[in-house]
Measured scan of single mutants.
Amino acid sequence: EVYKVKIKIERVLPNGEKVEEEITIEVEGMSEEELLALARELAAEPGVRIKEIEIEKLPP
């Protein structure tokens, strides 16, 4: 199964400015739980906050 994972994050820059970013990846052969863990890892940097995680199962 192939999933499209869209992660919206908010990053706080050293000057205090907040910037929103969106990361989209396609992943194959992982469960939804593994995808959530991967998304959290991607956003685990200091000053980064996850705003939204969207997981979509793509048709075969």
Rank of each mutant, 00 (worst) to 15 (best):
E20W: 02
V19F: 05
E1D: 14
L58I: 07
K6S: 12
I55C: 06
P60S: 08
A39H: 02
V12P: 03
P14N: 10
P14H: 13
I55N: 00
R11G: 01
I9E: 00
P60I: 15
E33S: 15
E54G: 10
V5Y: 03
R40E: 10
M30L: 13
L42N: 02
I53W: 04
P14A: 14
I55T: 02
K51I: 13
I23N: 02
M30A: 15
K4D: 01
R40W: 15
E17L: 11
E52D: 11
E17D: 09
K4Y: 04
E17A: 12
P59G: 15
I23D: 00
G16H: 04
E22H: 09
V12K: 08
I25M: 13
P59C: 15
L42C: 09
V2I: 10
K8T: 15
E32I: 12
E20A: 03
P46T: 09
G47M: 02
E54I: 12
K6F: 08
L58P: 03
L42H: 08
I7Y: 03
I25V: 05
N15C: 04
E33P: 05
I53F: 05
V5C: 12
E10Y: 02
G29N: 12
E26R: 09
V12F: 13
K57S: 08
R49H: 14
R49M: 10
A43F: 09
E52H: 12
I23L: 09
I55R: 02
G47R: 01
G47Y: 04
N15G: 08
K6A: 04
I50D: 00
E45H: 09
I7W: 02
L58R: 08
R49L: 15
I55A: 01
E28P: 10
T24Y: 11
A44N: 12
L38G: 02
E56P: 02
G29R: 09
S31N: 07
T24C: 09
L58H: 05
A43Y: 12
E1Q: 12
L13A: 06
P59K: 08
V19M: 08
R11C: 03
N15T: 14
M30F: 08
I55D: 00
E21G: 07
A44Y: 05
I55S: 01
G47Q: 04
P14W: 15
I23V: 10
S31H: 06
G29C: 07
E21D: 12
E10R: 01
I23S: 02
V48S: 04
E33Y: 10
P46K: 09
K4G: 02
I50T: 01
V19I: 14
